[in-house]
Design a protein around this nucleic acid. Structure first.
Lengths: 191, 191
DNA sequence: CGAATATTTGACCTCCAGTTCAAGAAAATT
DNA sequence: AATTTTCTTGAACTGGAGGTCAAATATTCG
């Protein structure tokens, strides 16, 4: 009973995610977040409690969507090297082609909140670990298929690639496509 | 003539640099900056014009100090691989051992201001390019000395390493030493 | 219908960021 | 010593962030 919600909570989180992604946590004001969601500030606080909680929801949503994307992409055709190279290029190209250079919400969060906000730090860590697992599994499959040298340590390589991803998404703020693509090729060379 | 300055401008910039480094650009208030420098807010604005200009000075100082450090370090003994591996470990260990996880001012700036602030973006880019040149030179020396395979493209490898450095400094916010050291070993393996 | 419950909203509050300023203080100049 | 110049400072200003609230609105239940 009571008055029914006039807006879709998940849609509001999705809009908030876009704002946080583009402007950062501190850089996003409640007023902006409410406007992006198409609701009043009061409704926003009523529904989510605080800016920080809303951010938690947004980050979680980002994480889920990212993991889904990674999973689908790595299930694609080609050798492990081809597949992972294409994956990295897709990420970098998306950054470069976006109207605003916003990078990756998880990386941005690691830098803005990492160390200061335990919950955010843990969330980012979980997110990265999950992606690393997916990459490691793909590399392992490559080893079984014979297109990846047996000498490669899948888990170590996966963690290394996650570090590379973070670096690429930072570099995408300041560098050109050519340099970034070359860096990707160097990174996947051992596979 | 006129009343002489009661404080060392460079020392004030150095203090400001520490604050910006630790708290980010947006996160550093004029009050904090002035207090760290041991002067009144008025003096700060009198001497530096604006928060943004002070930040420019701080970033420039950071850049100079970093380049100096890199130069000295890469002049050290050992093969190129040993030398660069030690360099990366030193950076990561410094991050991990610091009382607060503040990473690298240049990387932080790339993420906070990259794309939005053209001057800051250009400054970061120049800074990275300079370090990449130093690394490339070291690799080239390694090739001459015979400890780096002739097949290695020094410039490409150097840019790749700079991407890795950025990634490591992001990862240092959330990951443990062991993982990071392993990632470094993987990164320098081709050398 | 009237009560009870839940949502929506903009006005409102407090606090602090970023900056300016007027007044005072310390030197050089005459 | 009076003047000029430069530096120093905290008070004061403006604007906006983050959050709360009372009143208005929409629905279900008795």
């Amino acid at each position: 009973m009571g008055r029914p919600k006039q807006f879709d909570e998940e849609a509001a989180v999705a809009q908030a995610m876009e704002v946080f992604w583009t402007k950062g946590y501190a850089g996003s004001s409640p007023a902006e977040l409410a406007e992006a969601a198409g609701i009043g500030k009061g409704s926003l606080y009523h529904a989510f409690g605080s800016k920080r909680e809303l951010f938690g929801r947004a980050l979680s949503r980002y994480d889920r969507a990212g993991a889904e994307f990674t999973e689908e992409f790595l299930a694609g055709p080609g050798t492990a090297k081809e597949c992972i190279r294409a994956y990295l290029r897709t990420l970098v190209d998306a950054d470069l082609d976006a109207p605003v250079r916003r990078g990756c919400l998880a990386v941005n969060t690691a830098l803005e909140l990492g160390g200061r906000d335990p919950e955010a730090t843990a969330a980012v860590r979980r997110s990265v670990e999950r992606s690393a697992d997916l990459l490691a599994a793909r590399i392992e499959r490559g080893k079984l298929a014979g297109d990846v040298p047996a000498s490669v340590d899948a888990a170590a390589q996966a963690h290394f690639l996650m570090v590379t991803v973070a670096g690429l998404r930072v570099a995408a703020r300041t560098f050109d496509r050519e340099t970034l693509h070359a860096a990707i090729d160097t990174a996947v060379a051992p596979l």
